[in-house]
């Protein structure tokens, strides 16, 4: 219950909305970007960064008030936060808690690393698309050129971290 207590100390509880928990420390902004939240939408958004976590050592938390982020839309968060949970809050209570699975398909999220992929050709109206490669490791394959992108590259592209 330690984590919960700390949360309450740092940011007030929200009445209704979404809490994304168990984000690796430093990736809360990447999570917001993946959700497409810029701050201009007018939602009240709270980021809690670098709080203690038993599971992750340090973690980030994102709270969005007044909005229920649906699971399908939130799946991409798992690309940078594989342990993340999506919590739905109603009347100050967590009414559902889901672990996010990375999506089977991505459109426009990643850039293909192959310089001669058609999606890299300048000025062509083509959006990069990827399918998830089966298996334990997080890997995506370009629909067009077949190039496989692994976890390090995904983190680099989406969270700006060089692993």
């Amino acid at each position: 219950m330690n984590g919960l207590v700390e949360k309450h100390l740092l940011v007030s509880r929200i009445e209704m909305g979404t809490v994304i928990d168990h984000i690796p420390a430093g990736r809360a902004l990447a999570v917001l970007r993946l959700l497409g939240i810029t701050g201009r939408e007018g939602y009240r958004v709270a980021l809690v960064m670098n709080v203690e976590s038993r599971r992750l050592g340090k973690k980030d938390i994102v709270k969005i008030e007044g909005v229920y982020v649906d699971e399908e839309h939130a799946k991409r968060i798992a690309l940078v936060a594989p342990e993340a949970t999506l919590n739905r809050i109603e009347n100050y209570v967590v009414v559902s808690k889901k672990k996010l699975e990375p999506p089977e398909e991505l459109e426009g999220t990643l850039t293909c690393t192959n310089p001669t992929c058609i999606t890299r050709k300048p000025r062509e109206p083509v959006t990069p698309r990827f399918y998830r490669v089966r298996g334990k490791r997080l890997r995506y394959q370009c629909v067009y050129c077949g190039t496989i992108i692994g976890e390090d590259e995904i983190i680099k592209q989406l969270a700006g971290e060089h692993v």
């Binding site: 192959n114 001669t116 992929c117 058609i118 999606t119 890299r120 050709k121 062509e124 083509v126 370009c142 629909v143 067009y144 050129c145 077949g146 190039t147």
Partner: peptide, 10 residues
Amino acid sequence: RHKYEGAARF
């Protein structure tokens, strides 16, 4: 035929 991979699928 094209030198870019994926040109045909596109």
